[in-house]
Simulated scan of single mutants.
Amino acid sequence: MEMHRLSGWSMLVSLLLWPALSVAAGKCERLVVTGSPDAPPYLWQDPQDPAHLIGSNADLLRQVAGELGLIVELRYAGKRSQAIEEVRSGRIDMLADASLMTQQLESLDYIHPALAGNDYLVWTRIGSTLDYTEAKDLSGHTGAVSQQARLTQAFEAFARSQLTLVSTPNLTQAFQKLVLGEVEYVLAGRYAGMAMAQTLSIANDVQADPQPIDKPGLFLAISHNSACNDPWLRGQLAKKMTELPASGLTEAVLQRNLERWKAHLKQPVSTPKQ
C-alpha cells in the first residue's frame, strides 16, 4: 500500500515537473545571426573570413550567449536588406543590429533594451560658422546623410519636413561633399564618422558636435519563424541587455573594435559604406 502511494506521488511529481524539464531541454543551443556587413565598429565583413561578420555587436553577443550556454555564429548574408529578409524568413535566427521599426514588428521580436547605442552627430568642417545647438538650428542649411543611415522614425519625419538633406549612396560621398564645401554638415554615427574620417584621412579637417541629434539603438531582433524564438531565450537576453550598460563592457568592446577597424584600414580593404 505504501509503495503504491509512493509510486503515485512519484508519477504526480514527474508530471508536474515535465513542462519545466521540456522547456529546459528544448531551449536553443545554437543561434545563427547576421546583420549589416558595412557598419564598423558595430559589424562588418571579416576581411580574413568573408563568410562571417565581426565587430563590437558580434563580440558582445558572443559574450552574452556564452553566459547562457549558447553557441553563436555571425554569418554574412549580403547587404542589410538581404540580411533582414533572411531573418524574416527564419533561415537565419536573429539580427544583431536591428533598427526599431514598427513595420518589422510583424516578423521580428525585438529584445529590449538595445544591445548598443548609435548616437548620430552633426559633423562640420573645422572652422565652420554653423551654429548648432539643437536640430531646428539646421533649418536653412544644406546637409548630407547616407542612404544607409539608420535614424529613428521620429527624426526621419522631422528631417523630411524641416531639413534640407542631400542623400548620398554611402557615408564616403557624404563626407567628400562636406570637405569640398558642397554641404555644410553631415549626419553620421559617432563611431562610423570617426572611422570615415580615418579612412579618408580628413580627421584634421572635420569635427563633430558632442551633442547627439538622434539616438537610435541597435537591437537584437529574433525572427518569428526561428526555431530558437521562445520565452526563455527572449527573457534571458533581455536580462543580459539590462545588465550590460552597468558592466562597462559595451564601451570597452566598442573602443577595441574601433582600433581593430583602424588597423584594417591600413590594409588594402574596402572603405565602410554605412
Score class of each variant (00 low, 15 high):
residue 44 W to D: 00
residue 165 L to C: 10
residue 81 S to G: 11
residue 161 S to P: 00
residue 45 Q to A: 12
residue 232 W to P: 00
residue 267 Q to K: 15
residue 60 L to E: 01
residue 207 Q to K: 09
residue 95 L to P: 01
residue 185 Y to D: 04
residue 22 S to C: 12
residue 34 T to R: 04
residue 157 A to K: 14
residue 118 N to Y: 10
residue 239 K to E: 13
residue 136 K to V: 14
residue 84 I to T: 09
residue 188 A to Y: 11
residue 232 W to R: 08
residue 30 R to M: 03
residue 203 A to F: 04
residue 40 P to R: 08
residue 262 K to F: 15
residue 35 G to Y: 03
residue 210 P to N: 03
residue 132 Y to V: 09
residue 62 R to W: 06
residue 26 G to V: 00
residue 178 L to S: 05
residue 26 G to D: 11
residue 83 A to E: 00
residue 191 Y to W: 15
residue 156 E to P: 00
residue 174 A to L: 09
residue 76 Y to Q: 06
residue 17 L to R: 04
residue 39 A to W: 10
residue 138 L to E: 14
residue 18 W to C: 15
residue 260 R to F: 12
residue 114 A to D: 07
residue 95 L to E: 00
residue 136 K to A: 15
residue 218 L to W: 02
residue 232 W to H: 07
residue 113 P to R: 07
residue 185 Y to I: 05
residue 234 R to A: 08
residue 208 A to G: 06
residue 247 S to P: 06
residue 18 W to G: 13
residue 92 I to F: 04
residue 269 V to F: 10
residue 163 L to G: 10
residue 201 S to G: 01
residue 79 K to H: 14
residue 8 G to Q: 11
residue 267 Q to D: 07
residue 197 A to W: 08
residue 39 A to P: 00
residue 185 Y to M: 03
residue 273 K to M: 09
residue 110 Y to K: 12
residue 243 E to D: 14
residue 220 L to W: 08
residue 58 A to T: 05
residue 231 P to Q: 13
residue 39 A to Q: 06
residue 118 N to H: 13
residue 178 L to N: 11
residue 136 K to S: 15
residue 101 M to K: 11
residue 133 T to P: 01
residue 3 M to T: 14
residue 136 K to C: 01
residue 60 L to Y: 03
residue 165 L to N: 01
residue 212 P to H: 05
residue 273 K to L: 13
residue 273 K to P: 00
residue 171 L to Y: 02
residue 142 T to D: 08
residue 91 R to G: 03
residue 56 S to N: 03
residue 4 H to P: 00
residue 40 P to Q: 11
residue 195 A to W: 04
residue 36 S to L: 03
residue 180 L to Y: 12
residue 255 Q to C: 05
residue 241 M to T: 07
residue 47 P to S: 02
residue 27 K to C: 04
residue 11 M to W: 14
residue 108 L to A: 01
residue 87 V to L: 03
residue 185 Y to W: 08
residue 54 I to C: 10
residue 100 L to R: 08
